[in-house]
């Protein structure tokens, strides 16, 4: 078939397009990812039962707020990156803000505590569980998000992959926060921030393979 025949064929009986399709597809995937992550966390680890105390409730809210901010900002970038040329002229500055803010708050919190407490504040009780759980819970959400982004047309697959990993990591941290009983800002900065970063790197590495269209 010659190119002008292809043009003719493609122009026959044209349907109007739905411009909001990518936004809705990625948005739906984020919602499904959150539901999946909560289910895995609840069945596998169980929800913490001690958040009735004000102290625990405050940290639960801090963790949830951090994760929700990461997810919201990263999802906006991911929607843009899912369209051709969406990576153009947009440094991902805002994606770093929740991490920088958490590190800053962690530093302030360490500064106001005696140095003998630092080890406990940073390492906590369950650092290993956190290190393993967030990436593991992120797997299925990541698959769901990859499915959505693949239906669109990202043209920078490394960056689109990184943001897919970032959203998946954020979603996983959101779910894990309901289980986690380590209540300190340095713990959130190091283990939540670090594992979400791991998910982001994994996404960037896998992006070129998984997101081709």
């Amino acid at each position: 078939m010659k190119t002008d025949e292809l043009v003719t064929a493609l122009s026959r009986h044209l349907e109007p397009v739905d411009r909001g399709l990518i936004r809705r597809t990625v948005g739906l995937a984020v919602a499904v990812a959150i539901i999946v992550a909560f289910s895995v966390m609840a069945l596998w680890l169980g929800v913490r039962t001690d958040f009735v105390t004000a102290y625990a409730a405050a940290f639960l809210i801090a963790k949830l707020a951090f994760a929700v901010t990461v997810i919201s900002i990263a999802s906006v970038y991911l929607i843009r990156l899912s369209s051709p040329g969406g990576e153009r002229g947009r440094p991902a500055f805002w994606a770093f803000v929740p991490f920088a803010a958490t590190i800053l708050l962690a530093a302030v919190s360490l500064g106001s505590a005696p140095s003998s407490h630092w080890n406990r504040m940073i390492v906590g009780d369950e650092w290993l569980e956190c290190l393993l759980s967030i990436p593991v819970i992120a797997i299925v959400p990541f698959v769901v998000l990859v499915w959505a982004v693949r239906r669109a047309a990202p043209t920078n697959l490394v960056r689109a992959g990184a943001f897919t990993g970032l959203v998946a990591g954020g979603v996983s941290a959101l779910a894990y926060a309901l289980h986690c009983t380590d209540d300190s800002l340095p713990f959130i900065a190091v283990w939540y921030g670090g594992t979400i970063l791991l998910c982001t790197i994994a996404g960037a590495v896998l992006g070129p393979r998984l997101l081709r269209w």
Binding site: R19, L21, I22, S83, P84, G85, T155
Partner: peptide
């Protein structure tokens, strides 16, 4: 043709076409 819904009218068309062509 398949991806024409992904073009955002708030943006220029040239970079969108170029991104697909280069990809």
């Amino acid at each position: 043709h398949i991806q024409r819904h992904s073009y955002d009218p708030a943006e220029l068309l040239t970079p969108w076409v170029h991104a697909i062509a280069r990809y």
